[in-house]
Amino acid sequence: MSSRRAPRGEYIETDTGNKVARKATLVGTQHIMLGGKTVIQPDAMIRGDLVRTIHPSSQSGGNAAPQNNTAISIGRYCFLSRNCCLRPPGRFYKGAFTYMPLRMGDHVFVGPGAVVQAASVGSHVHIGAGCVIGEFAIIKDYVRILDGTVVPPNMVIPSFSIVAGQPARVIGEVPEGGHEAFELRDLYKTVGNNPQPAPH
């Protein structure tokens, strides 16, 4: 990779500390909100172009001011691994099809190859490699989803659950004091154009 354009780093680092890989595929960037200090690794894909087409408060006058049209909002210190894919969920609303926004809290780890179509993902959530999160699933805070899990559409996962299986079932609880493991600040420092080694 370190060819002629060595000064051009592998990542684009924004003022708010986001590290977005040049090889990431972001479609419809104007509809994607990054909270800051978020890492997007190469080949990750975010479908911001699938925006909401029907708005709940569109009775007043119709095409007035442009609505808040965020398709995907991501909090701080999130980590999107290689080959993962975030796409907004779609459903029928008042008799017509529309996509709905996907909201993601802080410190969310999305493993390699995972596909997330949830309605909301809380804070401090670990989504393992190769997971599939079905449409309109709601994942609360401090949830660990083990590798290869298939979360069915519309499933609600309560806080502090450990989830696994195809389809997903709650198999345990995050132990007392176990929530420090969800912290992603150190992981954030280990990637980017001048990565630092993980502290140990």
Binding site: R22, A24, G28, T29
Partner: peptide, 11 residues
């Protein structure tokens, strides 16, 4: 400036 870019799509 980044608001003008509608997508990052490596070829």
């Amino acid at each position: 400036m980044s608001s003008k870019r509608h997508s990052i799509l490596p070829s």
